[in-house]
Design a protein around this nucleic acid. Structure first.
Lengths: 171, 171
DNA sequence: TATTGTTATACTCTATAACTATA
DNA sequence: TATAGTTATAGAGTATAACAATA
């Protein structure tokens, strides 16, 4: 059909001082995030979860959460949105919420055995999608890219007092 | 206040084979795009445009569009969504739509003098926001990052027949 | 019959605030 | 009085299809 994000835009600017969307960091990130997210959503759906569910599961499997609040901060999603995501995962039997004996307000969130299995399968599929997108990079470039992206997420715009407390958008 | 996207997640995995959100490309892109977009939206609003308007203006200033359809493909936004964006820009006097004498269905979209001025001012502000995000990179790393991102957008997941014709999300 | 621009609409997602129960 | 989890809701943003004008 028709090209979206026409390759002509992907060239370097033709005239010194001019610029194009290929030089716009936000447009590049938006485009990549959108395409990757769409492909990953299809992949994780096959494992019975949404992309949001998968994202939360990444964190829960890596590190069981002492509370939903802590989990929502780690994922950068509002606690009220997290409720619905955990409802899905719990209904599917992939995570469990149990009360913290120390603090009866809090709930400890952990992955079930089925959750870890489903996550492993989903992660394998997600890795394949990432590989597809990153196919145009060699191993060294890929590692460098990930390092830089990680560093940006640790950068000044995400520091404690730094404005926008807006949520990540995975939906 | 409270940290969003807790730095603990930004470390490399602690156990070989384990993983965390800091290794998830989609989460990294989503997080960066969200934060950058929020900051840029504030910046371009001061110049009387939305972030969508700015994004379209980047393309129009670089290369006047022979038709809205061509423009929508270059930006990777649906033609119906583009209508509203151009309405905004035109009402603000930043772009003009004039009929193509060759094809009376099509409209040639170009930036007005005021549009070029506003764009230059907006671009300067956007550059400052990008600088802020990229402050954690040195010049070489920054150039390399942009090169890699550009290459990804030219990669297999964006090729002609490659699934998801989904739009970029700048809103 | 196909294409360009436009409009209308249904839908999803998001943001916010209010509420409860515990501390 | 503050915090953890939940619910409800209003608003923004998106996707889709249908339409009029022109090719």
């Amino acid at each position: 059909m028709v090209l979206r994000g026409d390759p002509r835009n992907v060239e370097a600017p033709r005239v010194a001082g001019s610029s194009s969307l290929a030089d716009d960091l936000h447009w590049l990130l938006a485009r990549l995030k959108q395409a990757l997210g769409a492909a990953e959503a299809v992949a994780v759906t096959r494992q019975g979860m949404t992309l949001w569910g998968y994202t939360v599961l990444v964190e829960v499997v890596a590190r069981p959460a002492g509370s939903q609040l802590a989990l929502s901060q780690a994922v950068a999603v509002d606690k009220s949105k997290l409720v619905a995501i955990l409802d899905e995962l719990e209904t599917a039997g992939l995570v469990s919420r149990r009360p913290d004996p120390t603090d009866r307000r809090a709930r400890i969130v952990s992955a079930t055995a089925a959750g870890r299995r489903a996550f492993a399968a989903a992660r394998a599929e997600v890795s394949r999608v990432e590989d597809e997108m990153l196919r145009v990079c060699d191993d060294r470039e890929r590692a460098l890219l990930m390092t830089l992206l990680r560093r940006l997420v640790g950068g000044p715009m995400f520091a404690a007092g730094a404005g926008s407390a807006n949520d990540t958008q995975c939906g």
